[in-house]
Design a protein around this nucleic acid. Structure first.
Length: 549
RNA sequence: GCGCCCGUAGCUCAGCGGAUAGAGCAGCUGCCUUCUAAGCAGUCGGUCGCAGGUUCGAGUCCUGCCGGGCGCACCA
C-alpha cells in the first residue's frame, strides 16, 4: 500500500462516516499522509481529524475516533491509533507495506512521476546571461536549478520549454563592440567599456577570423566587432553549458524582436490600452496604475526602445507561442524587476498571478583554497566545473533553497569523502549496484517481483526504508509545486542514510557457502527499488547515478 | 529612506501551522578474516536574532525592532 493508497483509504473512511451520519462535514479533496519521525507513531500519520474538527464542530480526538473505527476495517491496515491532539497513527501489515516494492519496480524509471501538472504549457527561462563575458558561478546556480526545475515540472506531466534569452542588442553590446574595436587596434578600452583578459582574447579571435575588420572606418567598425564578438561569446556560452550538461530548447535572440517589428507592435498595443504617455521626448508606460514605484520609460528620447520594451515584447511572444505560464528565474540582483514586470503585464491586460512567475535566487560566492586566490575576481563556470566536476557543481547549487545565499566551498565539493553530500548519495547507488552484481555472480535468481514474498520485509530498518521510498512521489510533486528542487536533494540524502542503516543491519546476500534465506530475494528487490528511486531522484537533478565508485 | 531575501547546534544548512526542532561536517567513544568503512552505532551540542500579537497549537503566519546580503536609471 502506497501513501497515496492510504490517503484514498482515509478519505473513504471519512466519506463512510459522513454517509453513515457519524460526521457532518464536507469530505475534503485530499488527505495528507505524513511519515512520522518516531516509530512509536506508527508507519504513517494523518492530521485529517485536526483539520476536520472545526468544520465538523467537534473535538479533534472525537473526529479521529470516528474515522479510526472505519479505517481499522481496511485490508492491509493492521492498527489505527488516535494520538496526541488528534492524529491518526496508522500501522500497516507487512504484506501491504512490502507491496510498495512491487509498485516501484513495476513503475521503474517513471516511479515518482505524477500527472498533477498535466496540460500545463510552461516556458521556463533561466541563465539568460549577456553575451559580453564568460558564464560565472552565479550562472551555474541558475543553470543547475533551472534545469532541475524543468525536469521536475516534466516529471509531473507539464510540457516545458527551456529557454535562454540572448541579449544581443542594446547599449551593452555597443560598448562591447567598441571595446573589442579599441583592443584590436591596440588602443585603450573606452570609458565604460569591458576589460579583462577574455575581452582581448575575443578581439584577437575576431581579427583572426575576419581580418578585413581592421580596414573598417572607426564609425562603422563597432557594430561589426560587436556582432563577431557576440558570435564568439555565444559559442563559449553554449560550450560551457554543455560541460555542465544543461541543454536549452530555445535560444531566443533579442535582436529578432527589434528587426521583426515586435517592439513597435508592443508599444502600439500598450498605447491602445491607454497606459502610455509622452514626456521629455520619451514614451512612458504608466505602471504606477498597477502598483509600481514609478512610471517606466519604454522608448527613450532618442527613439531607441528600453529593455523593458523588449522584455514585454518577449513576454507577449512567449504567450503567443502558446505558453500558459511564463517562468523566469532571476538572481537577487534583479529582484527589483519583479514588481515592474508584473505591473507591465497588467498594462497588457493580462493577470500576472495566472501567467507570470519570477522565482528569485540568492547569490553565490566561492571560497576554498583551490579558487580563493582569485578572490575579487569572478570565478567562471568553466573553472568551477574543472575544479569539482559537473555532478558536484550541479548538486551543490541545487541542494540549497533558492532563498539562501550559497558560499560554495570548492575544497568540500571536490573532495572524494563523506564531507561531500553528492558522494554520499552516489555512493549509496554504487553500493547497491555492486550488491546486485554480486547477487548475479552468486547466480541468485530474483525471479519476478510479483512472485517475491515481500511480506518478509518486516524488520524495523526495512520498514524505515519502505516508508522513505513511499514518500518519493509526494516529494517530487511538492518540489515541483513549490519550485524547490533542493527538496529532492535533501530527500535523497535522507534516503541514502536510511539505506545505509538498513544495509548495516540486514544481511542481504548469503555469506560463504551458506544457502540463501527466505529474506534474500525480498531484500534484493528492496535494494533494487531503492536503487531506482536514487537513480530517478539524481536524474531529476541532472546528476549521474554511477554503478561503480 | 523604500523594497526583496536571510538570521535555527562550534561550522554549512534542512524543516508545506502540528507530536520530544533535524541532517551533514567538526569533537569524543566504539564497529571491517564474509555484500563497497566514500559506511554504521553511540556521545557532545539549541533562549529557532529580540519583543509583542494571531490560535487548540508558531521555527513556520502578522507587526515592530536589531544584525547581514541584494536592489531602488531614458544600464540590463
Amino acid at each position: 500500500m502506497t501513501p497515496a493508497d492510504l490517503a484514498a483509504a482515509v478519505l473513504d473512511a471519512v466519506r463512510g462516516a459522513v454517509e453513515g451520519g457519524e460526521l457532518r462535514v464536507d469530505v475534503p479533496p485530499e488527505a495528507v499522509i505524513e511519515r512520522p519521525k518516531g516509530r512509536e507513531h506508527g508507519d504513517y500519520a494523518t492530521n485529517i481529524a485536526l483539520r476536520l474538527a472545526k468544520p465538523a464542530g467537534r473535538p479533534p480526538r472525537e473526529v479521529a475516533e470516528v474515522i479510526a473505527v472505519r479505517l481499522r476495517q481496511r485490508a492491509g491496515v493492521s492498527a489505527v491509533e488516535v494520538a496526541g491532539p488528534g492524529f491518526l497513527n496508522v500501522t500497516l501489515d507487512s504484506a501491504a507495506q512490502g507491496a510498495l516494492v512491487e509498485s516501484i519496480v513495476t513503475a521503474g524509471s517513471s516511479y515518482g512521476h505524477t500527472t498533477t501538472l498535466a496540460g500545463q504549457r510552461i516556458n521556463l527561462e533561466f541563465v539568460s546571461a549577456n553575451p559580453v563575458g564568460p558564464l560565472h558561478v552565479g550562472q551555474v546556480r541558475w543553470a543547475a536549478v533551472g534545469d532541475a526545475l524543468a525536469r521536475l515540472l516534466q516529471a509531473n506531466a507539464a510540457e516545458v520549454c527551456r529557454e535562454y534569452y540572448f541579449n544581443d542588442a542594446g547599449s551593452q553590446i555597443d560598448r562591447f563592440g567598441a571595446s573589442l574595436h579599441a583592443l584590436a587596434h591596440g588602443r585603450p578600452v573606452p570609458e565604460g567599456g569591458y576589460k579583462g583578459d577574455y575581452v582581448a582574447d575575443v578581439a584577437t579571435a575576431v581579427v583572426r577570423e575576419h581580418p578585413e575588420v581592421m580596414n573598417l572606418l572607426d564609425a562603422e567598425a563597432g557594430p561589426v566587432f560587436a556582432r563577431a564578438g557576440i558570435d564568439q561569446m555565444f559559442a563559449q556560452v553554449k560550450a560551457s553549458l554543455a560541460r555542465l550538461g544543461v541543454q536549452f530548447d530555445v535560444f531566443f535572440n533579442e535582436r529578432d524582436l527589434h528587426t521583426s517589428g515586435r517592439l513597435t507592435e508592443t508599444v502600439e498595443r500598450l498605447r491602445a490600452a491607454g497606459h502610455v504617455f509622452e514626456q521629455d521626448g520619451a514614451v512612458w508606460l504608466r505602471t504606477t496604475t498597477f502598483g509600481d514605484d514609478k512610471d517606466r520609460v519604454i522608448v527613450r528620447g532618442d527613439g531607441t526602445p528600453t529593455y523593458f520594451c523588449a522584455d514585454l515584447a518577449y513576454y507577449l511572444d512567449k504567450r503567443e507561442r502558446g505558453f500558459d505560464r511564463v517562468v523566469i528565474i532571476l538572481g537577487a540582483d534583479h529582484h527589483g524587476y519583479v514588481p515592474r514586470m508584473r505591473a507591465m503585464v497588467r498594462c497588457l491586460g493580462e493577470d500576472p498571478d495566472q501567467t507570470l512567475e519570477i522565482p528569485i535566487g540568492q547569490l553565490v560566492t566561492v571560497s576554498g583554497s583551490k579558487l580563493s586566490k582569485r578572490a575579487g575576481n569572478l570565478v567562471t563556470l568553466d573553472e568551477l566545473v574543472a575544479a569539482v566536476g559537473p555532478d558536484a557543481a550541479r548538486y551543490a547549487m541545487a541542494r540549497s533553497s533558492m532563498d539562501s545565499t550559497i558560499d560554495l566551498n570548492v575544497d568540500v565539493w571536490s573532495s572524494k569523502t563523506s564531507d561531500n553530500p553528492v558522494f554520499y548519495v552516489q555512493y549509496a547507488h554504487a553500493r547497491i549496484a555492486s550488491l546486485l552484481r554480486n547477487a548475479a555472480e552468486l547466480s541468485i535468481d530474483r525471479g519476478e517481483v510479483a512472485a517475491a514474498d515481500l511480506s518478509r520485509l518486516e524488520s524495523e530498518r526495512e520498514g524505515d526504508l519502505l516508508r522513505a521510498l513511499g514518500e518519493f512521489p509526494r516529494v517530487v510533486a511538492s518540489a515541483a509545486e513549490l519550485r524547490a528542487p533542493h527538496r529532492i536533494a535533501r530527500y535523497l540524502e535522507e534516503l541514502a542514510g536510511t539505506y545505509h542503516r538498513f544495509y548495516d543491519d540486514c544481511r542481504i546476500l548469503p555469506r560463504g557457502d551458506e544457502e540463501p534465506t527466505p529474506e534474500t530475494v525480498p531484500r534484493l528487490w528492496l535494494c533494487e527499488a531503492t536503487r531506482l528511486v536514487l537513480a530517478n531522484g539524481l536524474g531529476l537533478l541532472g546528476v549521474s547515478a554511477p554503478d561503480r565508485m
